[in-house]
Design a protein around this nucleic acid. Sequence first.
RNA 1: GGCGCAUUAGUCUAGUUGGCCUAGGACGCCGCCCUCUCAAGGCGGAGAUCGCGGGUUCGAAUCCCGCAUGCGCUACCA
Length: 480
Amino acid sequence: MEVRVRFAPSPTGYLHVGGARTALYNWLLARRHGGSFILRIEDTDISRSTEEAIQAIMEDLRWLGLDWDEGPEVGGKHFPYRQTGRYALYRDAAMRLLREGKAYPCFCEPEELAERRREALRQGRSPMYDRRCLALPEREKEARMRQGIPYALRFLVPEGEVTFTDLVRGEISFRNRDIEDFVLLRSDGSATYNLAVVVDDLEMEITHVVRGDDHLSNTPKQILLYRALGAEPPAFAHLPMIVARDGRPLSKRHGDVSVGSFREKGYLPEAMVNFLALLGWSLDDSTTIMDRTTLVENFSLERVSSKPAVWDEDKLLWMNSQYIMALDDRELAGRIFPFLVREGLVEESDAAARELLVKAAPLIRERIKLLADAVHLVRFLFQEVEIEEDARQVLEEEAAEPVLREAGKALLELKEFKAPQIEGTLRAMADRLGLKPRQAFQPLRVAITGRKVSPPLFESMELVGRERCLQRIARALEAL
RNA sequence: GGCGCAUUAGUCUAGUUGGCCUAGGACGCCGCCCUCUCAAGGCGGAGAUCGCGGGUUCGAAUCCCGCAUGCGCUACCA
């Protein structure tokens, strides 16, 4: 049987890392088994769903390389792939349940239900629906319906218990008497989450429901619904939550955890994917860096952990640096370039700048953990330098003036303005002045790059070029 | 209150059927080396009585029971 999985975000905000991991695991499972990965937008909550959020979620999924086989923009035979277009399906299912006596109308008002719930809690009782509308005489129900009194449709939870095998956690069971008669259709006719998911997963022939842990207690309700509809439930796998260091579920409270924000900070999608994959899953006892192919070839739900994982950005950062170091010059430059454009350092169309960046790539590769880190490291290549505040002190040191003076002369006489030659002549100069390398080179670094920290000096000078180097040295000298 | 799930170092985790675990790997941290700055790299180090308490066993992180803590659900949200 073909493996069919889905990622079903509700577009009430941006895709956050927890959602991204859920999507990734689903995608991985589909790719591992040559199945289908379906994207379905759960926008039954119209008031909170937005079109922008849908677009943003799709953009983030694409950025991560999680392509869907069916869903918005790609279509599929189970169209449409957003719940707002599937009302008829939910209604049909609900009405069928009503006809078969597996659901019943409830005329209770939301406010009064809320009040009863509060009261129950106050008295230490379980705040479950008391089925008072189920007890209504048939004639009374019909009368009220005829009068047009709005009603919600509740599922009549049967007796017994629900036991299922979660692919991550093993056997889990719930007693039905702990499950209340949940609402299927709201009084405005719209479907609630539990009804919609079941109807959709059924209609879309989903074989594995892989989702967050927070849905674990919804599962028995859904299984009951599958059975009531005369269908076999799919397999379930509940992923542990991603929490912050304080042990609470990761959320906005802990800073921006949207996938988009990581992209903007300069994380690589391949690093995100690798890191996300390892948040709750492992290949073995030692493999940490894995490319997409390795992930696809080895992913299995059996190796998914059931304990919540703490989001550790330090490790993500390290992983990102690993992926950055693995990029070749041109690729790395290509990824950094947009960040320079964003900073206004270069024009999008500046081909020469692109080439210069390619040459600078080997100098910065091991010095950045985020693509955005490159900006301040290469700024001096694209802009005249402005000496940074904390770098001025370097020029105030005693050795600064003679170094700049002598270096200027030495560089002027150099036949070939290449890193090895530059290094040779500058080291000789340092010897002549009786200075340690550091004493001799720091003032030059500040003059050329404007900062105390920069890519390797000689290579940087080569890229800046003789003329500009001499100008910068002269300027620094004037400023003394 | 009820129901459910989880519990190996600061963190991610390995540990699938009890012995190869005096608990392995990685991030982070500390030290040394390398060094023109910063990194990267190399070498080394600290850090876990495997939540707690019982039990089963020749032997338990691994099996059983109890407890504690945390989290989730308990909506006409998803």
